[in-house]
Simulated assay, not measured.
Amino acid sequence: MNDVYAGTTLRRLRLRWVVVASIAAVATALAYDLFTARFATTLARRWLVLSGLVLAYELALLWRFLPRNHDGERLAPSLGPATLLTVVRGVGVAFLAGFLLLPQPTESLVWLPAALYGLAALLDYVDGTLARLTDRVTELGTRLDVEIDALGILIAPLLAVAYGQLPVWYLLAGAARYLFVAGKRHRRRTGKPIHDLPSGPISRILAGVQMAFLTVVLSPLLTPPEATVLAAAVLIPFLANFLRDWWHLTGRLPR
């Protein structure tokens, strides 16, 4: 009976995924129309290609995580408002990625990259709070939230470096999480022990500081050399936290 329920529920979730993916595709097409009015058609197409690829990756993650949409012991038949909000964040991050293939915006569009990333960062706080208030904290929502966070912290520094706002070494911020995950997978494949990480709010706090800093850097408010000094102050504790977690994971530090 449980297997029948899970199979039926998963099919419903996949239908909802189709609806979500269709809405995201329509939003992307509308954004493309707006960009064609402000940029050359060639540039707008570049934006569409890269944004579309990032959005497709995010939707693939959502599809992959659908069987983890548990709000207790049973598979939940709907995604829930918090997870849908995380998807909206993902759309914003995908739109931001498209700017990597465009010249730096000027005049009325100069604030757009900062606005896109800032909104995604703000909603990162809202979706978690909403999940707790509605009692819909799921493994799907948690995993998708982490993936969107990591993708944003990868794309935003790339854009800031491309604009000359940050030095190249700040790209370590975007690479840190992916290197950590790759190291963890390597230990699992080679049969090495993987220890639990300590709980606590420090990782979320540092990620929040990272997002706030990147939002400001993508805006006209902060420019070198002030941005470089602040970059070092933000990056060092961020990387130190990953190093601490790695030592815990490998058993070099007691929990």
Rank of each mutant, 00 (worst) to 15 (best):
L171Y: 04
P103L: 05
A160H: 08
L144R: 10
V146H: 08
V126P: 09
G52M: 08
A240E: 08
V93P: 13
G200V: 10
R136A: 06
A240D: 04
G164T: 03
L10V: 12
F39S: 00
F99Y: 15
A27H: 01
P220V: 03
T8W: 09
R14G: 02
L123Q: 12
T129P: 00
W247I: 00
G72I: 07
A231L: 02
L61A: 11
G72N: 09
W63C: 04
A29Y: 03
L79K: 09
L122V: 14
S22N: 03
V146K: 11
F35P: 01
A94R: 03
L179P: 02
H195I: 03
S219Y: 04
L96T: 05
E139F: 03
L123Y: 12
R64E: 07
T215Y: 10
L239Y: 05
I148Q: 10
N2F: 11
I153L: 15
T138Q: 03
F238V: 03
K192L: 13
I153S: 13
E73K: 14
G90T: 11
V88L: 15
T223Q: 15
P81A: 15
D124K: 12
D245Y: 00
P193T: 10
R11K: 15
R244I: 05
L151I: 13
W247V: 00
V234I: 12
A176M: 04
S203C: 05
L112F: 07
A82C: 10
I202W: 12
V87R: 02
P198N: 02
T190R: 13
P105G: 08
A212S: 14
L179M: 12
T223A: 14
W246E: 05
V161W: 10
N2V: 13
T142Y: 05
A182N: 03
A76H: 15
P220C: 08
R143F: 15
G251I: 04
G174V: 09
T36N: 00
P220W: 06
L15M: 15
P193W: 10
L43D: 15
Y170M: 13
S219N: 07
V168L: 14
L130Y: 06
E107N: 12
L253C: 01
K192N: 08
